[in-house]
Each structure stands twice: as structure tokens, then as C-alpha cells.
Design a protein around this nucleic acid. Structure first.
Lengths: 144, 144
DNA sequence: TTATCTGCAAACATTTTGCAGCGAG
DNA sequence: CTCGCTGCAAAATGTTTGCAGATAA
């Protein structure tokens, strides 16, 4: 679970792999593997669920997509700004709208905190969840 | 899934509930529900796994413990500084050593980011993972 | 040709839930 | 006495894996 060699072997270009990459390209927010699988079926693409998982894992390992784990343990995937490096997300709990955020100051702070406590090889997770304006409006409309 | 009334009903004091609270008191780092269940068994306390989950959920709802979701979707629990309010964690990947962290500046930043984008009811997750000095030393020793 | 990928279903791990009985207040 | 809590086992969920056959290179 600790030190893991990161060798990007395999990487063959198949119809399924391409299809998964394609649906990820179509949406701007985080989707679950099962969601993506459904989207593929609806598009007529015949891809096994296991293959979706395998493809997503490969893409994540290669750093091509972001993974976000919800509070109930489900993994959500999203294509991210190509090689834009490290960034965080502001996610709407209602509609999934996602905004990428950069915060150099916070990066520096996190790094400092780790070093101050003698920690090395530090990484961090930082995500903000809230309700976007549109969803607030919709909730208000429903309550009426 | 959005607006949830927070009424802390129930809360009866039972042997099992007390036992769960007790093991949480014994350790300083994050443990999984299954871990805690094992610890109880080893202590001779006879508590069902389901009850451990139910107790943990109740304590979490009441704000008495922290929950942290690992990258592979497992929930870890830990008693937290009593009513110390919102804080974050610096966790060692090797031994689980956990240090509580306060960062008012980051809190303010997160809040500002949310508001700037029209988000309301904003919450955030922020955890730093790294390898502590002791674990670095141990790894070095093993590599030898 | 051949190593990798795919599909399917079974396996897994974690967490939740239904229900009969127990027990705190 | 009552209602919430507990235990057990079954169910639900999300994800991984074994294996035979398909397929890119």
C-alpha cells in the first residue's frame, strides 16, 4: 500500500477505451463509473462495466483524469485541465457543476504544515462542496 | 439529500454504545469500523458489527467524532478535540499518526471562493497525507 | 503470432436494513 | 410498560478479479 512502482505499461488503443474517453470529454462535471457506463449504453456503445472501471483506473494512473471520492465512498471521475497540474474543485451538491480552482497560497501552506511536522512526500485533498445559485433557485421554486 | 433536520433523538446509554466510545478513547488515530469491532472483540466486549456502525453514525451526526474517507472508499473514525469545532488533519500514510490542524486563513479562503462563485451552504474537506519522520526511518532501515 | 484487452459472472469488501427479542428509562 | 437499541443474517452497493475468447500491433 506504500511504495508502488508507476510503470504505464499496456496502453493499447481499443474501441472501448476510446469510447470511455469520449464520454468523459462530453461532460464538465464529475460522474460515477456506473453513470458513465449508462451513458455509453445509451449512445449504443457496447462496453462492459468492468472495462469502464479498468479504463478509468488506467486513465487515472496516467494522470489524465481527476478522481474524487464522495462522503459515501463512491468514486467520481472527470477529465481535467490537461497537464494543468495540481488543482482543486468547487462542486455543487445539487447538479454536480464543477469549477476548477487554483490556490498557490494554500498549496504553500499545506506544504509548510507538513514539513513543520517532519512529514515528507506530502499530498493533500481539498474540495469545496456547496449549492450553486441555480440549484438554490430551483429548491425555492419547488418549496413553493 | 440536501436539507436535513438535525434532531438528536434517541441517545440512550447502553453498554455497547459506551464500549464503542471507550475504544475510540484509547487510540489517537483513525480506525475503520471493522478495526474498532475487532478491538472490541479482543477486549472481550461482545458488540455486533452493525451496532458499531450504528453507534459511529450516531456519534458522527452528533459531531462527537471525525470521519475521513480514504481514497479507496473506506470510512475511518476518530474521536476529535471535544467541541473544538472545525479542523483538519495531517495523517501519516505509514502508521496513521494524526495531527489536528487549524487554519483560519484557509477557512476564510474557502468561504470566499464559494461565495465568489455564487455557492451557498459551503463546506469543505482538507486533509494532508504524508510520511512521518519515524516511518521514513523505518523504511530506510528495511531497505538496508 | 502473441501479449493485452474485453465481457461476463462470480467474488469481494464495506455498509445498511429487516425483524424478533432485549433492556433502559 | 414502551420504545429505542441490539444481534444476526440477508441485502445492497460499488468495485475487483478469474478466465476464455477477441483483437491490436
Amino acid at each position: 500500500m506504500a511504495t508502488e512502482a508507476r510503470r504505464a505499461i499496456g496502453e493499447r488503443s481499443t474501441r472501448q477505451r476510446t469510447a470511455v474517453a469520449a464520454v468523459l470529454q462530453e461532460v464538465d462535471d464529475f460522474r460515477s463509473a456506473q453513470d458513465l457506463h449508462q451513458m455509453l449504453r445509451r449512445k449504443g456503445e457496447r462496453v462492459g462495466l468492468a472495462t469502464v472501471y479498468r479504463s478509468l483506473r488506467a486513465m487515472a494512473d496516467a494522470g489524465d483524469i481527476d478522481i474524487l471520492v464522495t462522503a459515501d465512498g463512491e468514486s467520481l471521475y472527470r477529465r481535467c485541465g490537461q497537464g494543468a497540474g495540481h488543482h482543486h474543485h468547487l462542486v455543487c451538491r445539487g447538479c454536480g457543476l464543477t469549477i476548477e480552482i487554483s490556490a498557490p497560497a494554500v498549496e504553500r501552506w499545506a506544504s509548510t504544515v507538513a514539513v513543520d511536522h517532519g512529514f515528507t512526500d506530502a499530498q493533500h485533498t481539498l474540495d469545496i462542496f456547496g449549492t450553486c445559485q441555480d440549484c438554490v433557485d430551483q429548491e425555492a421554486a419547488q418549496a413553493r
